[in-house]
Simulated assay, not measured.
Amino acid sequence: MKKIIVLFTTLSVLAGCAGKSGSEEELQQIKQNTIDSINKAQVKQRTIDSMNKVNGKAVEKNTQKQEVTTTTTTNTGTGTTTTTTQKKGWSKTAKGAVIGAGVGAIGGAIIDKKHPGQGAILGGALGAGAGAVTGNVMDKKDGRK
């Protein structure tokens, strides 16, 4: 997933710079800045994960299960006991929309240098839509929806 984000960001930068006159050096600098920022985020996440392991905290997934037990009684005695499991946490559709909106907003602000706010709004909307669609496909594969 991280490789896809890196690829998408790099392609977005390249597509945004294609129509503008700029030097090859500027393009390389933009690529390097994007790669550096993603690498910093990965290093921070690895550090957090390792600290959680050292402190004895397991890295939790967002899909937790909770058991619910209900017992019904009638005049003649105890009836049936049913156990159901419910998934908690965010669906992959929601996660995809949030991640897509964030990446799209950052990409849109970088690409549209004259109007970064407008670019961020447009990029965020497009990214949220693409992320939600991708997450929905993943939810359907997992049988969540």
Rank of each mutant, 00 (worst) to 15 (best):
8 F>S: 05
8 F>T: 07
10 T>L: 13
11 L>E: 13
11 L>P: 00
11 L>V: 09
14 L>N: 07
15 A>Y: 02
15 A>R: 06
16 G>I: 04
17 C>S: 12
17 C>M: 15
17 C>V: 06
17 C>A: 13
18 A>F: 11
19 G>W: 02
20 K>P: 00
20 K>M: 10
20 K>W: 05
21 S>C: 03
21 S>L: 09
21 S>W: 06
21 S>G: 03
22 G>S: 10
22 G>F: 03
23 S>G: 09
23 S>Q: 08
23 S>A: 12
24 E>S: 13
25 E>C: 01
25 E>P: 01
26 E>Y: 08
26 E>L: 14
28 Q>N: 12
29 Q>P: 00
30 I>K: 11
30 I>P: 00
30 I>W: 10
30 I>S: 04
31 K>W: 00
31 K>T: 05
31 K>G: 03
31 K>I: 05
32 Q>T: 15
32 Q>Y: 06
34 T>A: 13
34 T>M: 12
36 D>Q: 10
36 D>I: 05
36 D>Y: 01
37 S>A: 13
38 I>M: 13
39 N>P: 00
39 N>M: 08
39 N>G: 01
40 K>N: 13
40 K>W: 04
40 K>C: 00
41 A>F: 03
44 K>N: 09
44 K>F: 05
45 Q>G: 00
46 R>Q: 10
49 D>K: 08
49 D>G: 03
50 S>G: 00
50 S>D: 09
50 S>F: 04
51 M>R: 11
51 M>Q: 15
51 M>N: 14
52 N>S: 07
53 K>V: 10
54 V>A: 15
55 N>G: 00
55 N>P: 00
56 G>V: 09
57 K>A: 05
57 K>C: 01
57 K>L: 07
58 A>L: 03
59 V>H: 01
59 V>E: 10
60 E>N: 12
60 E>Q: 15
61 K>A: 15
62 N>F: 03
63 T>E: 07
64 Q>G: 05
64 Q>Y: 02
64 Q>A: 09
64 Q>T: 14
65 K>M: 09
66 Q>M: 06
68 V>E: 11
68 V>I: 11
70 T>M: 07
70 T>A: 10
71 T>M: 11
71 T>N: 15
72 T>R: 08
72 T>Y: 06
73 T>I: 13
75 N>L: 14
76 T>V: 11
76 T>M: 07
76 T>Q: 06
77 G>N: 05
77 G>S: 04
77 G>V: 03
78 T>Y: 13
78 T>F: 12
78 T>N: 12
79 G>P: 01
80 T>I: 08
80 T>M: 06
81 T>L: 04
83 T>K: 15
83 T>W: 08
84 T>Y: 08
84 T>I: 09
85 T>Y: 10
86 Q>V: 14
86 Q>D: 05
86 Q>I: 14
87 K>H: 04
88 K>D: 01
88 K>E: 11
89 G>Y: 06
89 G>K: 02
